[in-house]
């Protein structure tokens, strides 16, 4: 049974327990063991990296060192955590001086980082280690004919030398549920979440550009794999209605929710009522 260190971060458990619950249920059904990491805290997000690079390095090195102890890969459902851990590890592997300095700090916690641990987005781990064929076998209510647009999220995809990800992974995972991947011009564009603290109007504009591109391409739903992107694309639809008078009515679902529904789980099990834009239409497809 594939076994992982699960680094949940702070946003998923506080803001999107539906993502967390759907992930755990899907993992169980796929015979994957996800063990919550013991004694870990926040990654600080790219915000911390912006004003305190060294502090950000140390807090993430500590998490990495804890994960390294049992030899299992670290997996996370959050792009912010993914980027922080992956980026800090990339830097420390390439900078012996900082690795030494950080390890001096880690001694205070009786920890040492060698840099051998692997960090992965949990969806990529399911793709690579379980595989789409095994996943497809568990799909009992395929989402045949449902057009879904993927928003991967910047920090999952770039910079590619750090993230080691490709969009095809998410596309194949979505197709495994029976859904159709809807391509749209602004697929690479940022959701705007990171600029919210300093310029809210700009953040709303970015979400709007993105949603319009998705709607114009004919998608019925949006798939996300990050709580910050999910929050921004889901919640801002209400702000956009107020600011621009435009209604997009595009339900935003986390990948494990989509997969769980296709595997036959019901809406309550995946907390569908917590998705702010009503996600009922997906149920219509499933009961057709």
């Amino acid at each position: 049974m594939p076994t992982y260190n699960l680094y949940m971060g702070c946003s998923v458990p506080a803001n999107y327990p539906n993502y967390e619950a759907a992930l755990l249920k899907v993992a169980k059904a796929l015979d994957v063991e996800l063990n919550y990491m013991e004694g870990v805290g926040c990654c600080g997000s790219p915000n911390l990296r912006a004003f305190d690079y060294y502090g950000w390095l140390v807090v993430n090195a500590r998490t990495l060192a804890i994960g390294e102890q049992n030899g299992h890969d670290i997996v996370t459902p959050c792009n912010g955590c993914f980027a922080s851990l992956k980026d800090a590890l990339y830097h420390l592997r390439h900078d012996k001086k900082d690795m030494k300095r950080v390890n001096e700090e880690l001694k205070k916690f009786d920890l040492e980082l060698r840099g051998t641990v692997r960090v992965r987005h949990v969806v990529e781990a399911l793709y690579t280690d379980v595989g789409v064929d095994a996943i497809r076998e568990k799909v009992t209510r395929p989402l045949d004919g449902v057009g879904i647009a993927i928003h991967a999220g910047c920090h999952l995809m770039r910079p590619a030398d750090v993230t080691e990800m490709s969009i095809e992974i998410l596309e194949e995972m979505l197709r495994a549920t029976g859904a159709t991947v809807v391509q749209y011009p602004l697929w690479k564009q940022c959701c705007g979440a990171t600029v919210l603290p300093v310029n809210e109007a700009l953040a709303v504009r970015l979400a709007r550009d993105k949603l319009r591109s998705i709607k114009d391409a004919g998608a019925e739903f949006i798939m996300v794999v990050c709580p910050a992107c999910g929050n921004q694309l889901d919640l801002q639809q209400f702000g956009i209605k107020d600011t621009y008078g435009e209604g997009y009515d595009l339900p935003v679902l986390f990948y494990p929710q989509i997969l769980a529904l296709a595997m036959g789980m019901d809406e309550e099990e995946v907390g569908l009522s917590m998705n702010r834009v009503p996600a009922d239409p997906i149920l219509d497809h499933l009961t057709e």
């Binding site: 790219p46 920090h155 770039r158 910079p159 590619a160 690479k188 990171t194 600029v195 300093v198």
Partner: peptide, 14 residues
């Protein structure tokens, strides 16, 4: 103000 408004989307870098 620009450095703080950077989305950190990494499209320029890519």
């Amino acid at each position: 103000k620009e450095i703080w408004e950077c989305l950190t989307c990494f499209q320029c870098q890519e």
